[in-house]
Computed example of a mutant assay.
Amino acid sequence: MELIICHDCSGQVSFSAQSCPHCGSEEPAGPYQMSRREKRAFRREAHNDRNLIVGMSACSIAGAVTGWITAGGFFQSMVLPPLYAIIGASVGLGAALLVNVFSARMT
């Protein structure tokens, strides 16, 4: 039976124990430490999420500006920018999702 030192109370605990018998800690081995590969994948996911938000926002703003520029009258200037913004957000979301899927498969 392999013994480890409890991360919280420094008492000896079995490696397979669910909790420390001395202090009741739920994680006697200490918090999980990510490997370099896991950290790199986590950073890549965070980066992809930021790209998704930025891409969708940029396409939405571009759509709203396009709707505002192409509007002819008062009614069109009230309807077209939000409509084009929704279309732009849809396009940006689709493009960003494709980039996320293909970047995840390349690694």
Results as ranks from 00 to 15, higher is better:
A89D: 05
G94M: 13
Y32E: 10
S35A: 00
C9L: 09
P28E: 00
I4E: 00
Y32M: 11
A71T: 06
L52C: 13
Q76Y: 02
S25D: 01
A41L: 14
G92Q: 04
E27T: 11
Q18N: 11
V54W: 08
H47C: 09
T70S: 13
G55L: 15
I5F: 02
A46L: 10
A71Q: 04
A64Y: 01
P21E: 06
A58H: 01
E2A: 10
A29H: 07
M56V: 15
L93H: 06
S77H: 06
Q76T: 11
G92P: 00
Y84E: 02
G67C: 02
E26N: 12
I61V: 15
S60Y: 09
F75T: 14
G92E: 04
P21G: 04
N51G: 08
P21N: 06
L98F: 09
C6L: 08
A95N: 08
N51Y: 07
N51S: 09
K39D: 07
H7Q: 07
G94S: 10
G11Y: 00
V13H: 00
Y84V: 06
G24E: 06
M34R: 05
I61E: 01
H22T: 11
L3R: 05
A85P: 01
H7D: 12
R43A: 13
I86T: 13
I4R: 00
V99G: 02
C20N: 02
S57Q: 03
G73E: 03
L3F: 13
I69Q: 09
V91F: 13
R44N: 09
S77P: 06
H7N: 14
V99F: 09
E27P: 00
N48G: 09
A71P: 11
G72R: 05
S10T: 11
T70H: 08
A89E: 04
A46Q: 07
V99D: 07
R36D: 14
D8M: 11
V54A: 10
I4H: 00
Q33R: 10
L3S: 06
S19C: 11
T70E: 08
G55Y: 05
E2S: 11
N51D: 09
D49S: 07
C23Q: 04
L3T: 08
V91D: 04
R36C: 05
H7P: 03
S35N: 02
I87L: 15
I69S: 08
H7A: 15
T66I: 15
R44K: 14
E45T: 11
W68N: 12
L98H: 04
L83D: 03
H22D: 05
G30H: 05
H7I: 06
L52G: 14
A58G: 05
K39F: 07
A58I: 13
I69M: 14
I5R: 06
G88N: 02
P31I: 12
G92L: 07
L80M: 15
A41V: 08
R43S: 13
F15M: 12
C23N: 04
Q33I: 15
N51T: 08
